[in-house]
Amino acid sequence: MIPGKFDYVRPSTVDEAVAALVAGGDDAKVLGGGQSLMPVLRLRMGEPSVIVDTTRIDEMKGITDAGDAVVIGAGVTHDDVAKNALVREHLALLAMTTEHVADRQIRHRGTMGGAMAHADPAGDQPPVALAMGASFTIAGPSGRRTVSAADFFVDYFTTAVGPDEVLVNVTFPKHTGWGAHYEKFNRTAQAWAIVGVAATVRMDGGSIAEARIGLTNMGPGPVRASGVEAALVGASTLEAIAAAAEHAAEGTSPNSDIHAEAEYREHLARVLTRRAVAQAAGL
């Protein structure tokens, strides 16, 4: 319950944070909201030598309108993301999904950027970033780079962010007016999603013109249900949606664990995709 010893640095700029990580070496670890890292420290499943606390870096705290996109600082809490007017107007799926992250206390403290960088395959938001085509700004010793969501999520708990790098912000293309729904399937309200389906659709005259579907916990990282997205174009009935949703498990590689086996997860992906899309489409 008591973490091992570590040094603590609290930079006030991104550059200072990167410098602290470089100085700290391989054992340095970024502490954002800490809601994923603190349990790891308390259980001594990780014992970093240096903690770089990024919670006081102003640049990472804002949500800004960038024309056709919304830029969310990596240090913005889940609660602030979910309640933000820009997010609610242009990124309904992200707002909806973020409301389902953990619980009130954790949403008050935890950050969306932290959750993305933690890359838990059961995380609610990474599939949204993938499906909506978000991009990630990463700062490191050699400057800043931008990485697409497809390249950002690498493997279980692994992203493109290097040990001496900091995630600065996430840019989401606006999906203004798109219908959205998140189906989180968990055993208790506190439990991680066994499977989650985040769906957002653009309707055109009663039928689906475009769809973006992200799946939680269907592989080592977030999965985009591209087969479903393609099959949904033009769908205007529940039957058509159901037929499209049959593609949901294609290309996935879900795990088996104490809560669910892979076969069951695949089944759930199909059922929940159908439901999520129907809700998002208002059908």
């Binding site: 603590y8 349990p39 606390d53 206390q105 403290r109």
Partner: peptide, 30 residues
Amino acid sequence: VVGCDTSNCGACTVLLDGSSVKSCSVLAVQ
């Protein structure tokens, strides 16, 4: 009080600048 070590129980909840947080999941220095 402390009831768990995985941030589940919420027994340690306090208000930090007016918002509820689990005080087991915040460093004192923070």
